[in-house]
Design a protein around this nucleic acid. Structure first.
Lengths: 214, 214
DNA sequence: CTTAGTTCTAGTCAATCTGACTATAACTAT
DNA sequence: ATAGTTATAGTCAGATTGACTAGAACTAAG
């Protein structure tokens, strides 16, 4: 499951979007579904998730994390399937590289129709986790490019938490977190006072199963 | 993986213990390992975790939650194994029912020798998650019986977080959480002023894959 | 019966954090 | 030159937190 930020069609403000693939065979032929695929014997879980994303959507996200293993008995009508679901956050530049086609399309994460399998439930669970992580951890930055303004981070928070935040107070909080560093640059080209650009200096979260050093 | 509270041999204060089983065949024959077993086609992940715990240790925990899916390539020397690990918190009365034997024994979670497979790393990861959950959520109560004193909850926190907490301030915080309800009862039999007994009124956390109602 | 020892429980106080708000700075568009 | 817009800094009251003090309620020792 891939989350990216795109402007909403209606308001133009950033919203969460995810790419889905159309089922071209039974079960659920014709319905949209999360991208995915089999785990082969010679790859780790994370590698399999990466490869499946690349094969189906052309995306190669930097931020990839295990979400949950779903293994209920009736997830698929015929056979029993266990899905170890990963989720990714991609920057706008990455997201633009996705191969859109007849069978791969982006959808707003909060306005989905009926999907194949239990994928609606999986996405709802992911959205809950995302809101929770957003409230604490430093995760919003992975949806933005390398340089960003404080207003852009605030819009990410507002899109995910679905409520408005006071710009001044939000600024105060962000400035108190050491992983966000000021740069000397300013974003030019707006119709108003140019905002300062910031940079995220923390490390991306690695999965416990995939850590390079113990 | 099962966590229970038991008095430390040295200090007598509560500490975290987990039951391990001895490997009776290769690989890692003779070493201690986490209890576990295969997933059969006709049971959900959570049911499989429950059943495997019951079969190996005789325990049937009320609080059972998915921890993480481990699927690195070299977790087992011969074949490739994916482990979907669950963890449980059991009350002292439950823990006392465990079948201890030559090949099943309780160990202090923070004083383990070399275990089979990557089980040391798995336990370390679980301890980290436990500390984190303890800091926020309402999880400590699942390690205690139905009725408990504020000092007992504090000892749970102190055991998991590994630092002392101010009794007065801790009391203030706990009394501010609505899930902890006063009872009219007091714990008698101590050598000092008898403390009031409290009760946890919240619901145990269910896994997203196992929810009864959407 | 009195006193010491222990823990339980209630409270104070300063420091910090939070949410709501005001004011000024710095740019663009007219 | 001026209005409009956003960026940024600061104020203030209320809530929260950590360190601490003190009395309450019991047991054990003498």
């Amino acid at each position: 499951m891939i989350f990216a930020l795109r402007p909403s069609e209606s308001s133009g403000r950033p919203a969460l979007w995810i790419p889905l693939v159309r089922r071209i065979r039974e079960p659920f032929k014709g319905l949209w579904a999360l991208p995915g695929g089999p785990l082969t014997p010679a790859e780790s879980l994370q590698d399999a998730a990466s490869r499946n994303l690349r094969d189906t959507t052309g995306l190669d996200p930097r931020y990839l994390e295990q979400l949950y293993a779903f293994g209920g008995l009736h997830r698929s009508p015929a056979q029993r399937i266990v899905s170890i679901v990963y989720w990714a956050l991609v920057q706008p530049t990455e997201a633009a590289l996705a191969d859109e086609s007849e069978n791969v399309r982006w959808f707003r994460a909060d306005r989905l129709g009926e999907l194949a399998f239990d994928h609606n439930a999986i996405i709802d669970y992911a959205l809950g986790r995302l809101r929770n992580k957003m409230a604490y951890g430093s995760i919003a930055y992975h949806l933005l490019g390398e340089y960003f303004t404080l207003a852009q981070i605030r819009e990410v928070y507002e899109a995910v938490l679905d409520r408005e935040l006071d710009p001044a107070n939000f600024r105060r909080q962000i400035k108190a977190t050491p992983e966000i560093a000021e740069t000397g640059e300013y974003l030019q080209g707006g119709k108003h006072r140019p905002p300062r650009l910031y940079r995220y200096t923390g490390r991306p979260g690695l999965d416990p199963d995939n850590r390079s050093t113990p």
